[in-house]
């Protein structure tokens, strides 16, 4: 009896061991394929983010070397709360959020017009997309010249319209941030427009046909079909847009360097300035943690909100 059992199990066991050796081969192959990516992400992202958290608890000047690292607990975070420069940067970030709904509205409108109501569609796609493919450095330098307080074409135009004292744009603490916001809107439209056009193309045509039969006018169709059908696209663009305002750096670095009188300093600029100009590594890391937390918070809100606000 016993003998019989083992005899019956033998081929099964052999089968299993063959299968498990196959499975082992699959696992090795799998690890080899995803290995480079895993190593890269571990070394260049995972370890650094942990290091950011650790360094945010330290007072450290990079030049001094590792031995001079001082652990100060949450002091850096307490300092942040009293740091006017940092608070000012956060406030500017908050102002910058305004750009997102503005360029979303413009992009949506342009996308609707381009999708259905114009000739030469591809020309428009390329024209509005130009700022996205051009480097921010080149674009920023052009705008810098266009906004030049005395000689720039923008102000010369305003003067020729009879405005005697046109704003000094990026050189004026009052107008510098709004100027950057304008440029940022101008840059962002292309990308959002393209995503909206894709969103529009996925709306079922029969919805509009049904509306036509019911005699709905353009505004009604927009209000009851287009806008709600685009809600998932809008939601996605809103989230990526908000996150990208937290990351703004290039425009500031090239155009204003946070000035005049820190009127255009923003979170990432302040972080960069603290870390790479003032070399306060620990303090800058605490700002990096705040940045991470902000982006994280928005991502979590996105997860929670997706179900609630997006109606298909």
């Amino acid at each position: 009896m016993q003998k019989l059992e083992t005899a019956a199990e033998a081929p099964k066991a052999k089968h299993i061991s063959k299968r498990s050796s196959l499975q082992k081969k699959e696992t090795i192959a799998g690890l080899l394929f995803v290995g480079p990516m895993l190593i890269g992400v571990t070394v260049l992202t995972f370890i650094p983010i942990i290091a950011t958290f650790l360094l945010s608890l330290a007072d450290w000047n990079f030049i001094a070397g590792f031995k001079d690292i001082k652990w100060v607990g949450f002091d850096n975070y307490e300092r942040l709360l009293q740091d006017d420069g940092f608070m000012k940067s956060l406030k500017n970030n908050a102002y910058f959020l305004l750009t997102v709904p503005i360029y979303l509205a413009i992009s949506m409108l342009l996308a609707i017009l381009i999708d259905k109501h114009v000739y030469m569609k591809s020309y428009f796609k390329v024209a509005y997309f130009m700022p996205y493919i051009s480097s921010i450095v080149a674009v920023a330098i052009v705008w810098q010249v266009l906004f030049h307080p005395s000689a720039g074409p923008v102000n010369q135009l305003l003067i020729s319209f009879g405005i005697d004292n046109p704003p000094k744009w990026i050189a004026d603490p009052k107008y510098a941030l709004p100027s950057l916001m304008m440029i940022s809107i101008w840059i962002s439209i292309g990308f959002n427009l393209i995503v909206y056009i894709a969103g529009l193309q996925s709306i079922p045509k029969d919805l509009y046909e049904a509306a036509d039969i019911d005699g709905a006018n353009a505004w009604h169709k927009f209000k009851s079909i287009t806008f709600p059908q685009l809600s998932s696209t809008s939601f996605f663009l809103l989230v990526t847009g908000i996150i990208s305002t937290f990351k703004i750096f290039d425009l500031i670095a090239i155009l204003t360097k946070g000035g005049p009188i820190s009127s255009t300093s923003m979170l990432v600029w302040h972080l960069y300035d603290t870390a790479f100009v003032n070399l306060k590594i620990g303090y800058a890391s605490s700002m990096a943690v705040i940045l991470f937390a902000c982006v994280m918070l928005i991502t979590v809100l996105q997860w929670l909100g997706q179900k609630k606000w997006v109606n298909y």
Partner: peptide, 11 residues
């Protein structure tokens, strides 16, 4: 989800 600027310093 990790913004690149949050890890610039350690990198």
């Amino acid at each position: 989800m990790i913004p690149h600027q949050a890890i610039l310093v350690p990198q």
